[in-house]
Amino acid sequence: MKRTFLKLWGMPILLALLSIFGLIAALLGDGIWDILGWLTLSVPLFLIIKHYYK
């Protein structure tokens, strides 16, 4: 059961956590936090573009 759950929901949960971290970092921090926010928020977009052209 656990293996099936992680196989199905692992990537969406990871992308959600990355997005939440990116939004909080971009809103609350300056300097390096802005860069981390941009990087973490661009990961889901990169994966969408990758799968679109696949």
Rank of each mutant, 00 (worst) to 15 (best):
L23F: 13
W33N: 10
L8R: 15
L18A: 10
D30N: 09
P12T: 02
I24M: 09
G29V: 12
K54I: 12
T40H: 00
W33P: 02
L17V: 11
L41G: 01
L18R: 11
P12E: 13
P12Y: 04
L15I: 03
I49G: 12
L17T: 00
P12C: 09
D30T: 12
L6K: 12
K7V: 13
A26K: 03
M11K: 13
I13K: 14
I24K: 09
S19G: 04
F5Q: 01
L23A: 09
F46L: 14
G10Y: 07
L15N: 02
I48D: 04
L17G: 05
L17C: 04
L23W: 13
K7I: 08
Y53M: 14
L39F: 11
M11N: 12
G22V: 02
W9M: 15
M11Y: 07
G22C: 01
L18T: 04
W9T: 15
I35E: 11
L41H: 02
L36R: 06
L15E: 03
K2W: 06
I24W: 03
L27Q: 03
R3Y: 02
D34I: 10
G10L: 08
D30F: 15
F46I: 12
G31H: 13
I20D: 01
F46W: 09
V43Q: 00
I24Q: 01
L47D: 11
W38R: 15
W9D: 15
K2C: 07
L15Y: 08
G37F: 03
K7G: 15
H51F: 03
L45V: 10
L17F: 10
L17H: 05
F5M: 05
L15Q: 00
H51Q: 06
A25P: 00
G37D: 01
G37R: 00
D30M: 14
A26P: 02
P44T: 01
L28T: 06
F5E: 02
Y53A: 07
T40C: 07
K2I: 15
R3Q: 13
H51S: 06
I13P: 05
D30Q: 10
L28W: 05
Y52I: 09
A26S: 10
I20R: 12
I24T: 09
F21L: 02
L39S: 14
L14P: 01
G10M: 13
L41F: 15
M1A: 14
G29S: 09
G29W: 12
D30G: 11
M1N: 12
L17Q: 05
G29M: 12
K50Q: 03
L15G: 03
P44E: 00
Y53R: 08
I48E: 06
L18W: 00
I35Q: 14
R3T: 06
K2T: 06
L47I: 06
L28K: 05
W9L: 15
I49V: 10
L36Y: 04
L6P: 06
P12D: 05
L18F: 07
K54H: 12
D30C: 13
G22P: 02
K50T: 04
W33T: 05
L45N: 13
